[in-house]
Each structure stands twice: as structure tokens, then as C-alpha cells.
Computed example of a mutant assay.
Amino acid sequence: MPTSDGLPIGALSRRTGLAVSAIRHYEKLGLLKPWRNAGGQRRYERADIRRLSFVMIAQNLGLSLTEIREVLSGLPGGRTPTPEDWTRISEGLRSHLDQRIRTLEKLRDDLDGCIGCGCLSLPRCALYNPQDRAARHGAGPRYLMGDSPES
């Protein structure tokens, strides 16, 4: 149940700096759950401004939209998230960020043995693809395409 008259999509776009098409895309992915007013127009909660800000920040941190949707599913519906809600979520992201930091440090330390092309086709790429592990996922730059080195 909405807690106010809600924000129209144009206002949400202006407040977040996101294009209306991006907001609709995020809605289709389940990152936002607008409601409809009596006239059938989409309306968004003010808390959606924070949700979209989080989406943009999380993408900059390297999270996929699927991962972001999972994280956001832990936020309460129908009310603005509290500082405690955000603390819980940020603590949950620590392991992801720690892994990203380790990966970036390894890249920095091993860069002289890799030109950073992302090809992952070299059978003996010591940095990203030792023993050509990525080949089992198929052709192309598998890790850049979303495959995980751990999978």
C-alpha cells in the first residue's frame, strides 16, 4: 500500500539522474515495484530514490543486476529503509568487495605477465586463466561475459 501520493516516473528520473527508460528497465527486472494511482499512472515511493541510488552505486562496485536484485529483496516493502537496513546490506556486500579488492590487487601485481586484453584464450594465462579453465564455459572472454572463475 502506498505511503503517499507517490512520485511520477518523470520526477523519479529527475531526482536520480536516470533516464525514464532505465527506470522502466529496472522495474522489469524487479528492482522497483511501482503502484498505479486511480488514473492508472505509475507511482513510486520516495524510498525508490534510495533504491535507484543503491543500484547505481552497486553497479559501480561491479555487482550484476541479478546480484543487486537479490540484495534489494532484503529491503522492506512499504516503508523507507532504516539506517539499520542499509547497515545490514552493506555488511553483506563486504565479502563481494573484499574479493573484488583481492582480484584488483592480483591484477596490479601480475599485470606485467598479462596485457589485460581479456581474451582468456591463452592456454597458460597465469593471471585469469591458468590451465585454460575458462574454455569449459565456451568461446570468448568468458569471465568478462559473466562467467565466474570459481564456477
Rank of each mutant, 00 (worst) to 15 (best):
E45Q: 11
E45C: 08
E45M: 11
E45N: 05
R46T: 04
R46W: 01
R46K: 08
R46L: 06
R46V: 02
R46P: 02
R46Q: 05
A47P: 02
A47Y: 04
A47W: 03
D48S: 12
I49E: 07
I49Y: 01
I49V: 11
R50L: 15
R50H: 15
R50F: 10
R50A: 15
R51N: 07
S53Q: 10
S53A: 12
F54P: 01
F54Q: 03
V55W: 02
M56R: 12
I57C: 08
I57A: 15
I57K: 14
A58N: 06
Q59I: 12
N60Q: 13
L61A: 12
L61T: 01
L61P: 00
L61S: 02
L61E: 07
G62M: 12
G62V: 13
G62H: 11
L63T: 01
L63E: 01
L63W: 00
S64E: 13
S64N: 11
S64Y: 15
S64R: 13
S64Q: 11
L65K: 05
E67A: 15
E67V: 05
I68N: 03
I68Y: 04
E70Y: 12
V71E: 08
L72V: 08
L72S: 05
S73M: 09
S73R: 08
G74Q: 10
G74A: 11
L75Q: 01
L75H: 04
L75M: 13
P76E: 15
P76C: 15
P76R: 12
P76V: 14
P76Q: 14
P76D: 13
G77W: 02
G77P: 01
G78N: 03
G78V: 15
G78K: 03
R79L: 08
R79G: 00
T80R: 09
T80K: 08
T80W: 10
T80H: 15
P81S: 12
P81I: 10
T82K: 15
T82P: 06
P83R: 13
E84L: 12
E84D: 14
E84S: 07
E84G: 06
D85F: 05
D85T: 01
D85G: 03
D85C: 07
W86S: 03
W86N: 04
W86M: 04
R88G: 13
I89M: 08
I89C: 06
I89Q: 03
I89D: 00
S90I: 14
S90C: 13
S90F: 15
S90W: 13
E91A: 10
E91V: 05
G92M: 13
G92K: 11
G92C: 10
G92Q: 10
G92I: 08
L93G: 06
R94I: 10
R94S: 11
R94H: 11
R94K: 13
S95Y: 06
S95C: 01
S95W: 07
D98G: 06
D98P: 00
D98N: 09
D98I: 12
Q99W: 03
Q99E: 15
R100L: 04
R100K: 14
I101S: 02
I101A: 05
R102L: 15
R102I: 10
